[in-house]
Write a protein that binds this DNA or RNA. Structure first.
Lengths: 209, 209, 209, 209
DNA sequence: CATGAATGAGCGTTCATTCAT
DNA sequence: GATGAATGAACGCTCATTCAT
């Protein structure tokens, strides 16, 4: 049983791939290294995955599942504590940032890796990916209702919130941010800023001026 | 004239590098591919650049120069039209986004490429890089003065604005954003949102609640 | 049958490496040249050897095995013919020289190649390497006992004998020796000279004069 | 005058080449590195030297000159102190070893570098190279006369002495010698052993047995 | 007298993938 | 169901050398 076979081999491959991804980043994910770690030949990987890409998709999917779970429980917990919507939104943002910081490798393949190697990203993965955004959108709607704000399409608002947090996470992990600034403070402020729900756009008002 | 020589070759190399970067992302940037595209040998690249890294630095530098010029003229133009600070900030944000959209190759090496291949990022490049951020910081200060807002360190505020726009540009160029959303609208709203100057953090007030 | 496969390829690689080493010296030993000589791709070498270094180690090891075998049988044969120790030592020296002349490729990696490309010379190879020297040391001890000579540490004496023969072999194979001299005579005399067991050092006696 | 020209450039090239050779070993001697150090282009080297090989010859020649000078003065000094020949021989051996230890880079190109890259070693260089050996031969003759030993051709004897020292120097610099042995003691004993002038060969006597 | 420009060959090594068995 | 064997392309980089100017 030292050397797994059949479906056990498939999951062993995934396990090692995941471990490699998390331990050394997406650059270390090579078929040979996975095979070496599993104890099988590189060829065997192709029995269970069409591609290295296909293998990667599975991990990306896992990542989306993890993220969603984390957002969902943050939402639930916040719901119990704070009936008002604002805190729920903040809790989601905080959970998103936490995921990005704690799972940088997952985060990378999910959101930062160039799109070409993910050319044939399967449709249902996209669907799962979107669930997280929809959760944010819902939280935004609820917060907005509570605050009587002017409407901006909630999925747009969610995307804005998301991208704003994503920018901060990206620049931090790419070390493009002035080292004299405190990352923690930056993230806290970024979360706050991101959660300020956008109102009806300024430029519409501008036209009336 | 088919094959450029001398300094012309140098800029041809830079041109092709930029194009390659634009067309296939930073992962496709290899000395040999650049050489092939230019029509010279890989060796020739080393006549004009010490390293692949050095070549990248030139691109990064050029990019920062371009960006700064573009931000500066946006600032100047806005200053003439609107004495009040708020519009200036928006003009800068708009110029930043425009740069990211129009110069994706430069943008990639400047902000999105992994930091390792740019290990020894030369110091004066950093200085030039920061000038852009300082311009934003100044605009924020001016806008804030005009609006009597609670103070948050302006370089922090500038970084937040920047990262928020960066997130949007990144996700768009990585095609991670729901295609049913209109990118233009997203960007306009994103700019608006980013320009809402952060006030004293909410979580401080939260403790007093 | 033209192109060897599997383990046959492995030994074909070793064969060609040895031949290359012999024909053009250790400077010509490159993975690509070996591959070309064998008729396989350079990649294939890495199927059987972790490194170029590892490949060299195998050669070194083989060489030590060969040398030791040759010394050992020379010792045994001489033991049968001559109960006195002096002849045994001479037989070992002669066998060493014969090895150096008949296996110049092995000899090169074992003793003449620069030490850097053999950076992590594995320990058990060293052990095997020393066995040959210890055999010489033993023969020296036995000869000395028979002759009642003043004692010099036998491993030192063995090293001196060895290095003296090595110098002759090296200069001959580097063609640094006056071509008017007869190599065979030189070697015979060198062997004689090397086998004159060193006595207590002269410079100690010098002080008493 | 920063950038030398004409014959001055030639000697500047030699100077830098020598420095490079002595500081970093023969492996660092590349035309480009020399040119960089001199401050001229690699092309300029070919104005004064047909080859990299030709340049190397000059350095090799220098080495032989140095060695000869060192041996000569050792001989002269020993002649004054010790009218008897034995000490002169020892002094020469000691000087040879000292040269090998203190000028390992010169030593390498003179005696240890593979012969192929020195294919067209010019004739008069060889002549100069032999002068050192002849000096040793003379000392041997003188010592022998003093000791009434059986004759062995003195150039043969000199070559044996030389090769024996060379073997020790080679193995030491290739780090093939057991690190538990003291190099200084080894060298002292080696010098002693090398200076034991070979007598009529043993194997001639053996035949009469 | 010297350079600027360029080349072709070569280096060790890793990659994802294929195919016959 | 899995392997053993092998491949072609690619990587960044250095080398000695040439040739027109």
């Amino acid at each position: 049983m030292q050397r797994p076979q059949g479906p056990a081999l498939q999951s062993a491959i995934l396990d090692e791939a995941r471990q490699l991804l998390l331990a050394e980043g997406s650059g270390a994910l090579s078929t040979r290294r996975i095979a070496r770690a599993v104890g099988c030949t590189a060829t065997s990987i192709y029995l269970y995955f069409e591609n290295k890409e296909a293998l990667l998709y599975v991990l990306v999917d896992e990542g989306f599942e993890l993220l969603h779970g984390s957002l969902e429980s943050a939402y639930r917990e916040a719901s119990e504590a704070h009936p008002a919507g604002e805190q729920r939104l903040r809790a989601l943002a905080r959970a998103y940032v936490a995921f990005g910081l704690q799972q940088p490798a997952y985060y990378e393949v999910m959101f930062r890796m160039a799109p070409e190697p993910l050319s044939e990203f399967p449709n249902d993965s996209y669907v799962r990916a979107r669930r997280s955004l929809e959760l944010i959108g819902r939280a935004i709607d609820e917060a907005r209702t509570a605050s009587n704000l002017e409407p901006v399409c909630s999925s747009t608002a969610a995307t804005l919130l998301w991208s704003s947090l994503h920018g901060l996470l990206s620049l931090l992990s790419n070390r493009r941010i002035d080292q004299r600034l405190d990352p923690t403070e930056l993230l806290e402020l970024g979360i706050e800023q991101a959660c300020r729900i956008p109102t009806a756009p300024h430029w519409e008002r501008r036209t009336s001026a």
